[in-house]
Amino acid sequence: MKYSLFLYTPLFLLLLIIIILISISVGSVNISCFEIVDMCFGSLKEGQFPQSHWDIVFRIRLPRIFLAILVGAGLSIAGVAFQAFLRNPLADPYIVGVSAGAAVGAGLSFLFKLNLLFHVISLTPVAAFMGALFTVFIVYRLSLVRGKVPVETFLLSGVIVGSFLWALVSFVMFLSREDLHRLIFWIMGSLAEKNWTDVFLLLPYLLTGSIILWMNSRALNVMTLGDEASHYLGVEVERTKFILIIASSLITAATVSVSGIIGFVGLIVPHIVRMIFGSDHRVVLPLSGLVGAILLVFSDTLARTLLVPMEIPVGIITALLGAPFFCYLLRKRKFSFF
């Protein structure tokens, strides 16, 4: 159990590094892996490689890769938490309407041209972040009955509030005709045109949220047995649930606000990791983070290289890759178990 963490963390890290190297080198301009390593470790002096290569690596590709790492890890970690404390294998980070809330925020920002405010700063991420957090707050308050939040109620109100907000999004789309394709692309999710600022904006939320979740991973194990059973094992159920909801929603809201809605990662990665490594969340949380990062860097690399010069929305790639692989695992597991 705990050994798998020590064994597989370095393995996955190595895999991640290899994929990062490949991802930096491919694209409209191919740069060899050796040149990249030389650039990083400074054995090549300035002038020994084209300035354009330097810019492509450090200004365009690396920030995008780091963002993919953060978003992939964040969505997977949040997905693990949502599935565990909602005790629902169908749950993903967006299940309680976070994505819909973010989309309303983003939509409103397009509608009121806040995305072009001062022609420098785009307020879209801020609006999306606010929309996402506000949604979770509403859903939590709606399901609060006599000081308790039953997970079934929480799930149900989340789904309902989500569908209401999606209707609002459609309405906003209907109103903002000219920005329609912007919003559609935002909803599809993309890591294009991102820079280091986005990475550093996202990092603190992700770190805080993930650390809080990991600190509660034993409680998360117990919570999968149910609220009442957790109480009998000494968990302060409502307090813990509140902390878990805050932490996982913060992660989701932050990722959605910079990358839009990238589906499937947060649903599928936790399942893949559980199928291979079991359900102990002390192991599942960090390994899901790693696997999610690998999956999204890989998918995003495909997204920007498959149909050059066009970009495929990365959510399409994650679903196209993830679903068949998931089915394969599901079948394989079935045959070996029965």
Partner: peptide, 18 residues
């Protein structure tokens, strides 16, 4: 009813939570 595939041992180990 438990829908996460813990092993029996892992379940019993949760008894050490407190």
């Amino acid at each position: 009813f438990i829908n996460f595939p813990y092993t029996a041992y892992e379940i019993v180990l949760m008894g050490r939570f407190p």
